[in-house]
Write a protein that binds this DNA or RNA. Structure first.
Length: 296
DNA sequence: CTAGGATCCTGTCAGC
DNA sequence: TGCTGACAGGATCCTA
């Protein structure tokens, strides 16, 4: 999906285009994509957008909120005076809407917001604003990379010491916000092999991994708005932000930007995984580093 | 408790 | 062309 940076981008965009606007009518094309009564949402003004990890919260004036999770293929496309689209990149960004993949349509006083989702894993859920933070999904989220301390992160790695590090950082209860792209990019940036057992990382490596996660997601958020805008430019230019900044993700066969070695695609934790076999060694043999691990 | 695999669903692409 | 299986920017549920 849309990982944390994309949801942040959506939040910023919708705040700009939809804040203060009124939802006049909700049309549900797929029952499982909209959980709760549409009546609670209709006629309501949008008073705020919030983000918890990869979940977007839309607060309404009547103290009702919508929790939106895009999962793998969700998209939010606002079509008003201009079009603002974000989420899973696809032709839908520039296509006629609604279409076959439109699951929910919000008719607003100023335009239309479309929730599209090819695989129907995502959802919009109606909940009282007061209960948002008690929602099971949100309650279980760990801290985001910018917030988590090295000590807390390292402790969590120890709790999952026999699982590959990639699987552990994909777990939103360990660290929140990373998905398949940024997990690969962060591990590459920190020069850590995704199959390394979480318990084998030194505190220094754990710290570097957090820093790298912040770095790659910051870069994405910074460019996110503009790349998404580029994507829906009037000329139909397709500017997939992956091309712009991903170093390894979907770059198998291309040279590593750091050392020139060919990037490989492997499978870790059941997910396609991209690495530089030179920069990300599976076995750490440096004796001094090992000593550091023992002492922690 | 952890680790790993199946599963939800639709669409696309590679390989016959 | 048509079929088949693998796989996909996520998270949960089930099993051992």
């Amino acid at each position: 999906m849309p990982e944390l940076p994309e949801v942040e981008t959506i939040k910023r965009g919708l705040s700009k285009f939809c804040l203060g606007k009124k939802i006049l009518h909700v049309k549900v094309f797929c029952e499982k994509s909209f959980i709760g009564p549409t009546e609670l949402v209709e006629g309501q003004e949008i008073v705020g957008f919030r983000r918890f990890g990869k979940a977007l919260i839309v607060d309404l004036k009547n103290s009702i909120s919508m929790m939106i999770h895009l999962r793998m293929t969700g998209q939010l496309i606002y079509d008003g005076k201009e079009r603002y689209a974000a989420g899973h990149p696809s032709e839908n960004f520039v296509a006629e809407l609604p279409n076959k993949q439109t699951r929910v349509m919000f008719e607003m006083d100023s335009g239309t917001l479309y929730f599209n989702d090819q695989r129907k894993f995502g959802f919009v859920k109606v909940i009282p604003t007061a209960e948002v933070e008690d929602d099971k999904f949100i309650k279980n989220l760990a801290k985001e990379p910018w917030e988590i301390s090295v000590g807390e992160f390292y402790q969590k790695l120890q709790r999952h010491k026999n699982a590959p590090i990639k699987a552990v950082i994909l777990d939103q209860k360990t660290i929140c916000g990373l998905g398949n792209i940024y997990a690969d990019e962060a591990l590459y940036d920190a020069e850590i092999h995704p199959k390394r057992l979480a318990g084998s990382l030194s505190t220094v490596e754990a710290e570097n991994l957090i820093k790298s996660a912040c770095k790659v997601m910051d870069a994405s958020i910074d460019s996110g708005g503009s790349t998404m805008a580029t994507y829906v430019k009037a000329d139909g230019t397709k500017g997939d932000y992956l091309e712009k900044f991903a170093k390894v993700f979907r770059n198998e066969g291309n040279p590593c930007p750091r050392c020139g070695t060919e990037i490989e695609k492997i499978k870790v934790a059941g997910r396609g995984t991209h690495i530089c076999p030179q920069c990300q060694k599976l076995v750490v043999v440096d004796c001094d580093e090992r000593k550091g691990v023992e002492n922690d």
